[in-house]
């Protein structure tokens, strides 16, 4: 067995192990981030839902409108005011 072949075999073992370890880290870090976020910065449904007084536009809807305007105008357009009819 040539020296190069042995080097390749080592590389295969080290390489695959490293890839597995890094992706294990991805899983561990991902879970840790999710737990941290869930524990300290949960974004609850009530926070997202409409807290504005009746007659005004829902914040979620406003965000969607602003995003649509931003895409259509290439980021130059701004939504200054949105009013409900009636």
């Amino acid at each position: 067995m040539s020296e190069n072949f042995l080097e390749a075999l080592t590389l295969m073992v080290v390489g695959m192990l490293t890839v597995f370890v890094i992706l294990l880290l991805v899983v561990v870090l991902g879970n840790a981030i999710i737990m941290f976020v869930n524990r300290f910065f949960p974004e609850t449904e009530s926070k997202l839902s409409n807290t504005s007084p009746p007659g005004q536009v829902d914040r979620k809807h406003l965000a969607v409108i602003a995003a649509a305007v931003s895409v259509v105008t290439g980021g130059r357009g701004r939504v200054l005011k949105v009013e409900k009819e009636g």
């Binding site: 991902g30 981030i33 737990m35 869930n38």
Partner: peptide, 9 residues
């Protein structure tokens, strides 16, 4: 577990 703040994560 469900992610409660995906944007921050």
């Amino acid at each position: 577990h469900k992610i409660k703040n995906l944007k921050l994560a």
